[in-house]
Amino acid sequence: MTPKIKIQTTAMDLWYDQFQALKAIDIAIPERAVTAFIGPSGCGKSSFLRCLNRMNDFIPAARVDGQVLLDGRNIYGAGEDVIALRRQVGMVFQRPNPFPASIWDNVAYGPRLHGITNRRTLEGIVEGSLRGAALWDEVKDKLRSPALSLSGGQQQRLCIARAIAVEPEVLLMDEPTSALDPMATARIEELVRILKEHFTVAIVTHNMQQAARISDETAFFLNGEIVETGPTQRLFTSPRDGRTEDYITGRFG
């Protein structure tokens, strides 16, 4: 059965002023699967990720042409509610960035922002989100402790809990384990595997073995273009493009 496509980009260009960072990106991101973006530094993979929830809107000179369809809706179309979009498409960053507040407040922040005030409802969301991020058992007795007292790996899982607290449909992850030790990395990877049952996950990673371990689909970016996309298993064993082969076998990049 062909999986449903959650995000489809068509001839998508990204410009930073005169510089074209992404060229004619066509990609289909399947629903409830993990899609990994790999490529050398500066290839545009993180820029692409940020196009998917319009994070690049914060950069004044950035301009997107072409289409980015989320469930068939062009998110760059007129009348798009960007706040609602970012609720639908959450993001987790390279370095854990919890707010300087308690664990509980970090997770409840988003739902409160979206108007939920009932204490009991919020408690349910906080617990559900922390469980969803595989952090509940470690923090349930210290929900009022400062988030910054947690370890790096726990902080990153807290950020994932914060992201899923607003019930997004898509989770964008920009090198979510690059600042973590191997054990914390393994936990996040395992979590991603579980998360994909409920969310569509798009992840940028520099670690090709990580992409091979956790993703279903992989896209290889080079110089602002997609060179090759395909099922992860195929792409890492028998890439079709010589440039993909050269990159994943360490001949450049």
């Binding site: 090709m208 091979a212 890492f236 064993t237 028998s238 890439p239 993909t244 082969e245 994943i248 076998t249």
Partner: peptide, 9 residues
């Protein structure tokens, strides 16, 4: 080396 592609094959 955790080889990939042709190295792995």
């Amino acid at each position: 080396f955790q080889p990939m592609a042709q190295d792995l094959r």
